[in-house]
């Protein structure tokens, strides 16, 4: 099996508009989704990221006080999973609970195989 990384794109603007109950329910959806992946032995790791960040650019000579990409392209979190092919991984990504709330994307990338 290969390892893939899901990069969840899009910010937390929607999150902030929801009530605590809705947020809690949303996290239960995440738990169910990742739980199913874990039950198949395909979960590796994953985290949500804080919206704030810094970026080192220009060969390390300057630092900007924000993530490189923002808005719809902001990386909001990631998930590492195992799958046989990028097609299977993409299929799995369709279940991402993030799609319940907004249209922003999930980028599916294969991790460089270890040798």
């Amino acid at each position: 099996m290969k390892e893939f990384m899901f990069l969840f794109r899009g910010g937390d603007e929607v999150w902030d508009t929801k009530s605590p109950e809705e947020q809690q329910e949303h996290m239960q959806h995440w738990q169910q989704w990742i739980g199913e992946i874990a039950e198949q032995g395909k979960f590796v790791s994953g985290e949500r990221l804080r919206t704030q960040g810094k970026t080192v650019i220009n060969k390390g000579t300057s630092i900007i006080d924000r993530p490189l990409t923002e808005g719809k392209e902001l990386v909001g979190g990631y998930l590492r999973i195992k799958a046989d092919s990028i097609e299977e991984a993409t299929e799995m990504a369709k279940g991402c609970p993030g799609f319940r709330w907004d249209a922003s994307g999930v980028e599916v990338r294969e991790v460089w195989p270890e040798h």
């Binding site: 794109r9 369709k94 279940g95 799609f99 999930v106 599916v108 294969e110 991790v111 460089w112």
Partner: peptide
Amino acid sequence: GQPLMNEGKTLLDFGKKVIDRPLAEGKELV
């Protein structure tokens, strides 16, 4: 930590649309 392969797919539009490349490319390719 791990490097990622350059190829990728991206799910858009509530997961209904799949494009055959990473969302951001060039200088912004992860």
